[in-house]
Design a protein around this nucleic acid. Sequence first.
DNA 1: TCTTGTCATTAAATCGATTTAACGATACAG
DNA 2: CTGTATCGTTAAATCGATTTAATGACAAGA
Lengths: 353, 353
Amino acid sequence: MNDGGKRPGRPPTIRDVAELASVAPATVSNVLTGRRPVAEDRKQRVLAAVAQLGYRPNHLAASLRRQETRTIGIVIPDLTNPFFAALVHRIEELAAEADYQILLMSSNEDTEQEAHRVEVLLARQTDGLIIAPARDEVSAFAASAADLPPTVLVDRGFGLAGFDTIAADNYDAARRGCQHLLSLGHTDIVLVVSDTSLANIADRIAGYRDALSEAGLADRARVVVGGFTVDGCRGAIEQELRRADRPTAIFSAAYIATLGAIKAIRALDLAFPDNVSLLSFDDSDWMTALRPYVSAVAQPVEEMAAESWRLLQQRLTGAAGDVARVRLPCSLQVRESTRPPSAAKPKRRFGST
Amino acid sequence: MNDGGKRPGRPPTIRDVAELASVAPATVSNVLTGRRPVAEDRKQRVLAAVAQLGYRPNHLAASLRRQETRTIGIVIPDLTNPFFAALVHRIEELAAEADYQILLMSSNEDTEQEAHRVEVLLARQTDGLIIAPARDEVSAFAASAADLPPTVLVDRGFGLAGFDTIAADNYDAARRGCQHLLSLGHTDIVLVVSDTSLANIADRIAGYRDALSEAGLADRARVVVGGFTVDGCRGAIEQELRRADRPTAIFSAAYIATLGAIKAIRALDLAFPDNVSLLSFDDSDWMTALRPYVSAVAQPVEEMAAESWRLLQQRLTGAAGDVARVRLPCSLQVRESTRPPSAAKPKRRFGST
DNA sequence: TCTTGTCATTAAATCGATTTAACGATACAG
DNA sequence: CTGTATCGTTAAATCGATTTAATGACAAGA
């Protein structure tokens, strides 16, 4: 409200505060940062001046001098994917508690955009980076780990040299999911994935295949690629469901694949689990809102976020040792959409519409 | 890879580049920013030096000098709400195109946290702010509009003095939604909201009430408050559904309320639209994945994001005039969950589980 | 030949903080 | 009473860029 008559139109600087309190700028700094002791009376004068001027330290200047921005960059493929939204949400929360802020960028699953965004973050002197890479190669976003500030890779790029990496145990999760379906008696299980080029997905495929092999059904593996859109997945799944040897179970190995699967089943006037069992990778509130509850493999998003932040913070404070590789276990939520295959395969129609 | 022998361990500065190219730092700046002309031969020398050293301008230093950070702060109540996730996603995309980066913060629906986050953003010299406030008063996050850089308020705080504000036309949307239900013959329509203190919600309630009044059913209005959690909403709705005079239609006026409503209906072994019609505020992919498709009032998220960015950018470039107030229309998606009330009110059980 | 003007170039000032190093005052040991 | 240590204080240097203002070279005009 009252600018004390200093420098009209511009926010007050540490110099203004110093002048008003009749001390040196360094003293103001010492009061505010608490780095060095300041006599009580001067401290009060400074505090009063700060209050009177409504002084707010320019974080930019401090960052430049300190060579530390307390900013971390986060790059994710797509914020509209609830998995990444939840991840970012939690990381932001944890970072804020430690007085770190986040610069958020989406790569839109595109390596070129990703590389550009990382470049921008580097220019902005972010203290650290948390990246969920679009691809599993470092070359996509940096020449090498050495070119980057402390960086942790989450969800993708697991095990890349020089980085702390965190991912869900996709292999184990897919294997257990498939075993669950096998234990129900399914032998025709289609795995629906978005894209095969990601290690994540490759792991899920491997887990699925291994579970089948262990059951002596290696030759029954059927993997369908639906792409990164709901409609793409839906189309691919519809095609499978139209075949004469229709699968008795669908294991949708991605968030969009699940949406696509549900829509496909519905589009063909089929029902789960009556006509096909459905198992989803990625859990959400909707799984228990849908009519028969949808069984799902739940990724430990919160833990992935927590672990990402923990590892990054360790590096930031120099308390880190060798690069860490953390695999976090998924949990299998058996609900209603997975049941033994019905021998008759009845085709049920709906009353509505 | 090769640091040219300059300053080991520290990234090269403009001085290093200048020295290597045998020019003044100012010349390097002029080459890189293109603000003043530089002779071709020197320009080439500079560019070569930049490439050799792997020089990357320190954005912090530039920001400090230019008094412009090309950073905008975004504060939203909750990133796990798909509405806000989509909003942020789109704004980030648009901002990136204009070479602006975003600092993202969640207020967690809490005004204290919100005020603190805004304070942090101010200290960081963000050029502009986009806020979806936790409450509709300015006092929650600033003494007044004058204390803030160019700021637009989106979704909430519509019409607050001194700000560009953008919101969906909640009143009209709720009114039309209710009219739709009325036109189907419903007279017992319960409106479920999260919280009544928000203007947004008040508008929805008003639209709902007005639609009822216009139909001469003012006294039939029933508004249920479920809070900000799915379970809270579910509980509140279950209670309504258990009453003897069970409503024939539920209008869930928020994302969580819809989830709660669906879960409540299911928990009581009821079905929509057979036992109760269901109309959702906020659309999503899931609405057409659920068994009977869920009718919904769709908020224009993309447009809200676009308009937010457009207005902010106008202010940033000084091209703006009076504060703008933009109401964007919602669209009513009539699908399968809304139907005429059945006279018999049959209680249908599911076969499964 | 001597201005006058133009233009690329650069030395120096600047942005707003923090940190270093120097300083002066006081307290204490010898 | 002198010499040393301690401690709060501050002038000045610093972070790494941009911008201002001054410089010098050269061309055109008188």
